[in-house]
């Protein structure tokens, strides 16, 4: 018999009690995925939902910085139990890599992802929000392969360069028949409707735009401050009021 990696077999079981798994994703980097994923997860948790946040940007994790998550660590009990932080069940590779640079090639990214998916005991959740690395590489392909209930929430900025990359991602997800909830236009600084029109031409739901918030940087590291920003109010309006 050929050697078989047993880990993938148990992933369905680990995610069985999670109602929705939403990957906040973009073909382009620097569009604000981590900020949107984190604030979206925090708002849902504050509204009483059982929410998890899983940072899969292994080489550049940032959700711990956004939330100011210090002195929290997973427990070990029949696997990894993510700690609670600000009402979220939270997991990031940073718990294991610390602040050290962690250069990973594709095969290592896949292995780390499969390891964490197969040993993490998330328990019952309404939503697991995933902060994705930029691009349409290993993590996107592995999640599509391993997580049957995955849904993608696409983020772009108003930049035509960002949107050009994002369009390719939308087409790929469509070809692979993966559920795509819609698109958010982040850091908007004008009133031009090009991104909205182009998104609707792709027959994808345009969820809304989020204006550039110059005060957001001052709120990094403090969840209460983050939730009081205009950015947070706009996320609430764009993603929750619309009942995605």
């Amino acid at each position: 018999m050929k050697l078989l990696d047993p880990r993938s077999s148990v992933i369905d079981k680990r995610l069985k009690r999670i109602r929705r798994v939403i990957a906040v994703s973009s073909g382009k980097g620097g569009v604000g995925k981590s900020m949107i994923a984190t604030v979206f997860a925090l708002i849902m948790a504050k509204s009483g939902l059982k929410v998890g946040l899983f940072d899969l940007d292994f080489t550049n994790p940032s959700t711990h910085l956004i939330m100011g998550a210090k002195n929290v660590l997973p427990k070990e009990e029949k696997g990894i139990i993510p700690p609670f932080f600000n009402d979220l069940k939270y997991l990031s590779l940073v718990f294991y890599s610390g602040d050290k640079a962690t250069p990973l090639r594709g095969v290592d990214v896949s292995n780390a992802l499969i390891e964490l998916l197969s040993v993490t005991q998330w328990g019952k959740l309404d939503v697991l929000v995933i902060d994705m690395p930029p691009g349409i590489g290993d993590v996107v392909l592995d999640l599509i392969r391993l997580v049957k209930k995955i849904e993608f929430l696409i983020v772009t900025t108003s930049s035509q360069i960002a949107f050009h990359t994002v369009k390719k991602q939308i087409k790929l997800l469509r070809e692979l028949k993966v559920k795509t909830i819609g698109l958010v236009e982040n850091m908007k600084m004008n009133k031009i409707k090009t991104i909205q029109e182009e998104t609707e031409k792709l027959d994808l739901r345009f969820l809304g735009d989020i204006p550039y918030d110059s005060t957001l940087e001052e709120s990094i590291g403090d969840c209460d401050k983050l939730l009081a920003t205009n950015f947070s109010k706009m996320i609430n309006h764009t993603l929750l009021i619309k009942e995605i």
Partner: peptide, 18 residues
């Protein structure tokens, strides 16, 4: 008991092969 999760993965994979 991280090993428990790995053992469970082995059992699940073996069940599928069976």
């Amino acid at each position: 008991m991280h090993e428990w999760a790995l053992a469970e993965a082995v059992i699940t994979a073996a069940s599928k092969i069976a």
